[in-house]
Design a protein around this nucleic acid. Structure first.
Lengths: 143, 143
DNA sequence: TATTGTTATACTCTATAACTATA
DNA sequence: TATAGTTATAGAGTATAACAATA
């Protein structure tokens, strides 16, 4: 029987499976951040903040890939909860740099640790499959 | 040198790489649907609709994992653009089933085809890596 | 009584444009 | 002039609660 062009190649099949995997984990993410009373964007912002070095608002906007005007509101809500604080930058008084409070630092760790935990789909793979998966993904992202 | 428990295992590393891969592809998705003048949720809704069989609003809410009240607005906007239509269900007059219009069917195909195309990260893998990736992901999702 | 879909409400995220205070 | 951050505005998504029509 002659094959034809419409057959999906392994790359397309792998991509579809990746889609299914990440779609399945979206709920996991939503549920996890909701447990911490964070919106998805607030959780992302918290992750982006460096525990060591204050981050200018505009840098956070760049990392969140949204307009700077949105960051004002997102940070307002985090600051109202006492998770972050705006610090003036002595070198450039236009800049406000974001620093985690003690409470923000603790919550950030909870969020980061929770999200770093692999889902069941990954955990049930054999150790060898996990290593192979890691190696292939490294090659995919390296170039 | 003694190893210690803090070292990340291959599963955690693979999961972190998967996170990086999907994060990187989020912009691709956003850009693709914006090209079609669709919001992310509108694009998801369009994907979920079955070209063959009309889908009740409540079923769409279930597939989108959001409250039924939201679906009213999302479908309103798709219907105003002539992409879908609400059809009364003869068997249960409370139900409104969603059917794609000719235009909606065509746009749905464009969206589905675009998103099914693997990103560069996957395409640049060797044919063997692509097959191995597909097989491992199949095992991950099968159980 | 229970369910389907809608409306009303309130909140978050979104971009654009206009503004301020700096540089 | 240009940049960092804010505000105002308008639109889209979100859940909750109350409602109409139907089962």
């Amino acid at each position: 029987m002659a094959t034809h062009a419409a057959k999906r190649d392994a790359g397309q099949e792998a991509w579809a499976l990746l889609g299914a995997l990440t779609l399945g984990q979206r709920n996991r993410f939503m549920a996890a951040v909701a447990e911490f009373d964070l919106s998805p964007m607030q959780a992302h912002a918290l992750k982006m903040l460096d525990p060591e070095h204050p981050l200018p608002m505009s840098d956070l906007a760049g990392q969140l890939r949204c307009d700077a005007s949105n960051v004002t509101g997102i940070v307002d809500r985090l600051e109202n909860r006492g998770l972050v604080e705006r610090r003036p930058d002595p070198a450039d008084r236009r800049v406000k740099a974001l620093a985690l409070t003690t409470e923000g630092l603790a919550l950030r760790k909870l969020v980061v640790d929770r999200l770093a935990e692999p889902p069941e789909a990954i955990k049930r793979l054999s150790a060898e499959d996990q290593r192979t998966l890691r190696d292939i993904l490294t090659r995919a992202l390296d170039a």
